[in-house]
Nucleic acid binder design. Structure first.
Length: 498
RNA sequence: GCUCCUGUCGUCUAGCCUGGCCUAGGACACCGCCCUUUCAAGGCGGCGACACGGGUUCAAAUCCCGUCGGGAGCGCCA
């Protein structure tokens, strides 16, 4: 069997969309599991929409996701150039050969005329197909008109009858009526290649063995196979992936939420989590385990088991997968990931002392459980860095306004005033004392305690929270952390004011 | 409109090719219980689907036909 060579060929017109990212990922997985090569090619022939910044961004996004390529515009290779804008002479030369071999012809129809034809065909309920007006032009006449400066495109001669059949690795055998395939434009009048043509020339010259792409290309594939034949190249194998949709079953777009790899990166998702989730969109492992690393995915992935129907992008499941990946991180990794968002929020200094790092590790590890992505961290850390009884929610206030609540807070404030060092054990002693004094116990005791110290109704277990709070209060953070005694006193004053 | 693709729990899917093992399996979400010094996390359990209609067959989610639904394509865009 020939060497597996696959490619991802985006046009640099914006951020990398997760749908395209999935296509790239399936290609990459297929290449890696077959010890083949993965090639990045930039399709920048649409000058109006392509921009170099987008190409750079694309490369960053792909790299962040964890994909690497063996050949590409940034690293070269034996089959370059890998930017279509640099391959113009190649396209021109093959199209000339096709003209000479009478497999292609010049067409002088104006865009306006073609548009009219399409519209009237559609009005009649027919599929618009190029009429073939210029098919019969003699080479001499064409040549004269070109020399006279007339604008022309080059079109491929395609058969008018029969079907074009091919086998798709995902969908099985497919059949298209040739009658409905018009002669595709190869070279536009401005000399730039049209998509279908550039793709075929590039894929053939780059030795691509498998073309794995979205199902929106299904009909292009028929045209492209015709082109392979005309150019006397062997067509590669094809696999068409289903589309990625939003929950309302329309193509995934910004309306549905984050759609670009870049956004997920910024929101603090782990690349390994997005990678894992994307692999599961339209494919599932044969065993039941779904949380998989990149390496596991390389081994388990099976192109022939890819689903044929469209897949809805499920943010909930992505969050779950993300949590599973986050759980596997070490305390140090967690702290490192937490640093940036917390620092941006103004909670942490630019330069962290060893003690601060060690505190951050413990605190972040304790808070990680409720988190799906790292951008949620600052909110979680509010339990340390922000304490304001005045701002507590109504639910929290209600806890304090109960008979027990009021008594517990008063007693706590009093007890803590006399206590220099607070830790969880000390607090346990204190809470036992308060229990005796007030007669409140269980939830009636502990819930007010929690609210008094955090101004929140939920959060960390108190046995983890209290030592962290006391330690943190001694460290010099840009936003100082208030210790237990301060908090209890403030809460006490607050409820007395109600 | 035409052409192509597609249709299993709300969502991602297993099963379909090679009919019986399917009382249709798993995961997310949801709900409940347990654990617990609230919540969350974790553990356990529950709800929940073969789009519809015909056929073939002793037997159909699985094969055939039709209907309906969803998506895509119909450019000198990619």
């Amino acid at each position: 069997m020939t060497k597996v060579r696959v490619r991802f060929a985006p046009s640099p017109t914006g951020y990398l969309h997760v749908g395209n990212a999935r296509t790239a990922l399936f290609n990459w997985l297929f290449a890696r599991q077959n010890k083949g090569e993965f090639i990045l090619r930039v399709e920048d022939t649409d000058v109006e929409r392509s921009e170099k910044e987008y190409e750079d961004q694309l490369i960053k996004d792909l790299q962040w996701l964890g994909l690497d390529w063996d050949e590409g515009p940034d690293k070269g290779g034996d089959h370059g150039p890998y930017r279509q804008s640099l391959r113009m002479d190649i396209y021109a030369s093959y199209s000339q050969t096709l003209i000479e071999n009478k497999k292609a012809y010049y067409c002088f129809c104006s865009p306006e005329q073609l548009k009219r034809e399409r519209e009237s065909a559609r009005a009649e309920g027919k599929t618009p197909v190029y009429s073939g007006t210029c098919r019969g032009l003699s080479p001499e006449e064409s040549k004269q008109r070109i020399e006279a400066g007339e604008e022309a495109v080059i079109r491929l001669f395609t058969p008018d009858r029969g079907t074009l059949d091919f086998h798709d690795l995902v969908r099985g055998s497919l059949s298209f009526q040739l009658e409905l395939i018009g002669d595709p434009v190869l070279l536009r009048s401005n000399g730039l290649p049209a998509y279908n043509y550039a793709v075929v020339v590039d894929d053939a010259l780059m030795g691509i063995s498998h073309v794995i792409r979205g199902e929106d290309h299904l009909i292009n594939t028929a045209k492209q196979i015709l082109l392979y034949k005309a150019l006397e190249f062997d067509p590669p194998l094809f696999a068409h992936l289903s589309m990625v949709m939003g929950e309302d079953n329309t193509r995934l777009s910004k309306r549905h939420g984050a759609t670009s790899v870049h956004q997920f990166n910024q929101e603090g998702f782990l690349a390994s989590a997005l990678f894992n989730y994307l692999a599961l969109l339209g494919w599932s492992p044969s065993e039941e385990k779904e949380v998989l690393s990149k390496n596991e995915l390389i081994h388990k992935f099976d192109l022939s088991k890819v689903s044929r129907s469209a897949a809805v992008f499920d943010y909930d499941k992505l969050h779950w997968i993300s949590r599973q990946h986050i759980k596997k991180l070490s305390a140090r990794e967690i702290a490192e990931k937490a640093f940036e968002p917390l620092q941006e929020e103004g909670f942490l200094p630019d330069e962290m002392s060893d003690k601060q790092w060690s505190w951050l590790q413990k605190a972040a590890t304790a808070l990680i459980k409720g988190i799906s992505c790292f951008s949620e961290f600052p909110e979680q850390f509010l339990i340390f860095f922000s304490f304001s009884p005045k701002k507590m929610t109504e639910d929290a206030r209600k806890v304090l306004e109960t008979e027990c609540g009021t008594k517990v807070v008063q007693a706590l404030s009093k007890e803590l005033k006399q206590t220099l060092r607070v830790n969880f054990d000390k607090l346990s002693v204190i809470s036992g004392e308060i229990k005796k004094q007030t007669g409140c116990k269980g939830k009636d005791l502990f819930h007010p305690l929690r609210v008094a110290l955090t101004a929140q109704t939920s959060g960390l277990d108190l046995d983890k929270f209290i030592p962290l709070l006391e330690q943190g209060a001694k460290l010099d953070f840009p936003v100082p952390i208030k210790n237990c005694a301060q908090r209890a006193a403030e809460t006490d004053r607050f409820i007395q004011g109600i």
